[in-house]
Structures are given as C-alpha cells and as structure tokens.
Design a protein around this nucleic acid. Structure first.
Lengths: 341, 341
DNA sequence: TTGTAAGCGTTATCAT
DNA sequence: ATGATAACGCTTACAA
C-alpha cells in the first residue's frame, strides 16, 4: 500500500511514517508512544495501531541524541575475560548487577579488559556517551579509571574503595576490620606467629586487608614480618604459602586475604604435612561457597558481595536520576567460624 | 577563555568547539578525526591539538544516527544469569565471543534472560538499533528470536541450528553424528540395552542428539524406548538417570546429551551400586574440562565450542561488512575415549 | 584541500 | 489536545 521504492527498501519504519499512517502529526505520535501524556484516546489508539501494523521501534540513537539518555549502564571489570568468568567474586558481582538492573529497564553492558589493551580504551568508551552510568569493580591502581571518572560528569559508583576517593562515590566493606577480626581470633586461639598472604598492592582490597592485619598484629604485640603477596588466585595463594613456609617455618597461623588464596595455602600446608588448624590455623576472606564445603571448612571473613552490589546499583540509579549520591559507611565485617582456624 | 554560561556549563565539548578551537570548519575537523582523508597536515595538527586540549570524544549517538553503525554487537544468551555464569558451555561461548571481538574494535553487549521476561524484550532491544549485529547461542524454540531476526535486517548468526533455519545463518556441529558415534561405540563394547538422557526438546542440540541416537539404535537393531529428558544440568541428568533405572533396570549403556548430565548420571549409578563401565557404560557430550578429570574420566563427544564461536564471529563480521554470509557444513563429531564407556 | 549545507530520527518548546 | 519548528551532534555530498 505504501509507495514502494524498490527491492530492499522495506527497512525500518520511522516516526514520520507512523504519524502519517495514524493520520496525526509527528509530535502527537511521539507523545502517544512515550507514555501518552496529553493525547486524546482516539489519537492514542490510531498511533498504537500504526505502531503495531508497521512494527515500529524507536531509533535509540536519535532518541538519545536529544534525551541524552541511552538506557544502558556499564559494568567495568578491568580483568581478562577468563578471569572474570572463573573468579567467584567477579561472577557474583556480574550476577548482582544483572539482577539489580532487572527491575529497571536499563541494559547492562559488560566491559572487560582486553589482551593488548591500549591505555584508556575503556575510559574513552565510557565518555563517548554510550551509557548513562558505570559501576566499576575489581579496579587497579593504574587503570586510569579513577581519574577519568572523577573528571567526567558520567554517574559512576565503585564497588570497593578507589585509591583516591575524593569526588568519587563507592561502596565498600570494612576490609581492615575484617583482617583485624581474623588476627584476633587466631591470637585468642593461641597463635603467636601469624603470617599473611596479601592481595595485590595495586588493589585497595589487598592494601586495606594488609593494613588491618598490621594494625591487629601491632595491637597484639606480634611481629608483622611474615608477609607474602598473592594475586587473589588459588595458584598465587599456594605460591605465597610456599615462600612463607620456606622463610618462616615456625608460623602457626595464616590470614589469607581471599578464600581462593586460602584454598591454595591449605593445599600447600597439606602437602607439607602441616595439620590445620593444629599446626597452623588458616583464615580466609570472602566466604565463598567453597569455604563452606565440608572438605575445606574454611574459617573466613564474610563478604556480602550481593549486598555491596545492590547498594552500588541503588547509588548509581540515584545518581543518574537525582544527580548525586553519597558514599555510605563501610559494611561491617563478620567472621564465620569453621574448622580451619 | 570561553564564554562561560554559568556553573556546571563545562560539560562535553562538541565537534563545533573543536573546529572553532582549531580554526577550521566542522567538516574538516570531522575528516581529521576520522582517518584524516583529504586534510592538510597543518589542519590535521591543529585539530589533533584541539581534540587533546578539549578532551573531545565524539558523541556516538550522533555519529550512529548518521552512519547507521553503533560499534557494538550483542551476544544473546536467553538463559537466566546464574545459568550463564555456571554452565561451562555458556561461559566458553562468552569467552570465545569476547576474544574474537578483541581484535576488531567492536564492543560486546551481553544480553541474558531476565526473571519476569516480557516476551520480545530482547527482540525489541535488538531492533532498536543499538547494535550492528547479533550472535545467538543456547536459544529455545519459543523465545521468538528466530522469527524476529529472520524478518529483521540486522546481521545475525546463530551458534547451533535454529528450528527453522531458512533465511538464517548458523554455525553448528554434527550433533546427530556425535550421538551416532556414541551409540556405535557402546554397541561395539557389547552394550545391548542402551538408554539416553536427552536434552530439552525446545533446543535443537537436544533434539538433534536424540535423533542421532534413535537413528543409530535403529541401525543396530536395538529398541529405542529408554529415553528420559534432562535440562543439560547435573541435577537434571541425575533425576533422569533415576527414572531410567527405575523403569529399565536392565540397561547397560547410557548416552547423555551433555557432560553435565553425564556427571549427574554417573553419580546416581555410583549411588545405586552399578559399576561404570562394567555394569553400565556412560558416554557424554561436549568434552568439557571436567570430562578429562581423572576422577570422572568420561568418554564423550568432543564439541569444539571455541571454534564454533570463532566461525560464528567471522560470519557475523562478514555479514556486517559484506551484507551476507553462508551457513557452512556442520563441524564433524569426534569421540574422545576415556574409561567410562 | 576546504567549507557550506543538508540531513539522520527523535524529543521538546511553544503557539494554536 | 495538537502541530509546526527548532534543536541534539555528527557525517557527507557537493561546491568552491
């Protein structure tokens, strides 16, 4: 019925065509499509009809050009993709954001690190107006995200304290407090030579847990020289534990800054014939499912990722709508007692 | 230096401002920014300077409005997010697409199912012009994606045969052939009462593997009545195995349409005191890492997901650039022999 | 090589 | 309630 323009000219209908088909002006059609404020029932019906008949879908580029809204938010996880998919902490973050967004009608855009990453690719993508907001988790000191987002007007929320939090909003748990809890528990249990397997020092979660460990060791009047760095992975934790045993054979307690690293440490301790917790107590951090596994039974500091992420999403949505949000106090740490320490 | 318009008026610089700052016209600035065809070295330098000074980033909405390119492609996995993150097959797909895109400068948009999913939400998102192309994997008969993409002009590639492949391009392996291989192997090994734990019948991978099983059973002159349906999960496989043993206590071989289901079947068989492969042989499908685990040692049909996904991405990029791509023949199936069957 | 001008498809303002 | 009309920020003929 329409003036055909040749083969392949079907393509996507525009608002103009809908308006024409409905016998109204483009503005009325637009109003009818968006909520229908101030449009007569008859016009509304005509437009609805035309939309259905033509299979009209608004062009988002055109729409966001004028509304300055894209309808999507980014989750930035500056880690290689295989890491993102294998690390339970990261998958929990992804899951949390995905479900928190489920209720809103925002689309999630997942942005991970890429092999030969040219510095600033992610920041550039974010500033190019493709998203209405950003959640950043698992970020590193040198990834440039903090400065980029601080200077940008793009709403953003960090999961985990940024290195320079000024002008940035973030959600975090009390990492130092958690480490303190772990040390105190081991001290109570009679440990006197307590080591730590720390996280990477380019991540605040690693830094803060180490700080907490040092503080608690000082409080207890214990030496804080048994420190080895891991990378939050099982293998990294195992390697750190090896070094720890080589250099400090007398340790009787280990605080690992993540459950994954604790699992690696446990494996090494078993291989080296140390019994846990009798010879060496072990306490992890995160309280992943694996910690509750009877075969592991890891005492650990609970980290409520889904709550953290929920709060982050709330804060982000608030920022997008209201224009700002505040950084709440850190979530308190809680020790979950199992048989390892 | 610029005419300030009040507080908060800093915001994002536009191409116009860059042009003014560089002392050239907007079109010259545009050309300089996009590749720099036909711009004098001096103009180029001036523009580059201005861009750097102003921190200009092109507005993608405006750009895609005219170029009709968004610079992103969607990966659609119509499964709930927890499923996506826990199923090794799906994570492999995600990883594959992510790395295949790494070389191009396309951004990946991950789209998963949502709890109260209103029918067609995904299709609507895809047609709204937010992406240049789509890869669909793990799709179901009733998810509406096939029709939506068939009628749409959006480039798309399915990983796994669609139910109605006409007008759609897809990459698949020889699922029926794989099932046949499994049955023949068990027949060779002396099995005569072979059951199957099938996949869901709203997915072609489930259907095709069942078809292959039936064909091979017929070829061997065996009865094909021992069939129970699973959902590709471990629990589903276990439940199906229970039913199988209840109804056909005499079975001596099981073809499970996925390794996850095979793992569930193995667990049930062990619990019920049947030894594998002596009492009952078991063959899975997919060849996930877990199949190679010595504690499982599952004979299985190899499924080269990363290759499948690579081909799918290639096909998609071709379609986006050239306008069309063809469906290649299915990848041949290969049996990987381990101790379970 | 450069600039002018015409869109791309929406929404938003403002008379009517 | 409705409809012109002016943006939104960019690319791209076409002219100079």
């Amino acid at each position: 019925m329409s003036t055909t323009v040749g083969p392949g000219a079907s393509s996507v209908p525009t608002l103009d065509e809908v308006a024409r088909e409905a016998g109204v002006s483009r503005s009325t059609a637009s109003r009818a499509i968006n909520g229908g404020e101030r449009v007569s029932p008859s016009a509304q019906a005509a437009v609805d009809d035309a939309v259905a008949r033509l299979g009209f879908v608004p062009n988002r580029a055109a729409r966001s050009l004028v509304t300055r809204r894209t309808g999507s938010v980014a989750l930035v996880l500056p880690e290689p993709d295989e890491r993102v998919l294998n690390d339970p902490f990261l998958t929990a973050t992804l899951r949390g954001v995905s479900s928190a967004l489920g209720s809103s009608d925002l689309q999630l855009i997942l942005i991970m690190a890429r092999p030969g990453e040219k510095e600033g690719r992610i920041a550039r993508y974010l500033s190019s107006g493709h998203v209405d907001g950003v959640i950043v988790a698992s970020h590193h000191r040198e990834d440039g995200l903090e400065d980029a987002l601080r200077t940008s007007s793009l709403p953003s929320v960090f999961v985990g304290r940024p290195f320079s939090p000024d002008g940035l909003t973030f959600i975090d748990m009390d990492n130092a407090g958690g480490a303190r809890l772990a040390v105190r528990r081991m001290v109570e249990r009679g440990c006197r030579r307590i080591a730590t397997v720390t996280g990477p020092d380019d991540m605040t979660s690693g830094v803060d847990r180490l700080t907490g460990w040092r503080a608690a060791m000082a409080e207890a009047g214990l030496a804080d020289d048994a420190v080895e760095t891991g990378d939050f992975t099982l293998l990294g934790g195992a390697a750190a534990m090896e070094r720890l045993l080589d250099e400090h054979p007398d340790i009787d307690g280990v605080f690992a800054a993540s459950d994954m690293m604790a699992a690696g440490a446990l494996r090494v301790l078993r291989e080296r014939g140390r019994s846990v917790p009798d010879d060496v107590a072990v306490i992890g951090f995160d309280d992943l499912d694996m910690a509750a596994d009877p075969a592991i039974a890891l005492t650990t500091i609970h980290n409520d990722v889904s709550e953290l992420v929920r709060l982050a999403c709330d804060a982000l949505l608030t920022t997008i709508e209201v224009g700002s949000a505040t950084t709440p106090p850190p979530l308190p740490a809680r020790l979950v007692s199992r048989s390892s320490g």
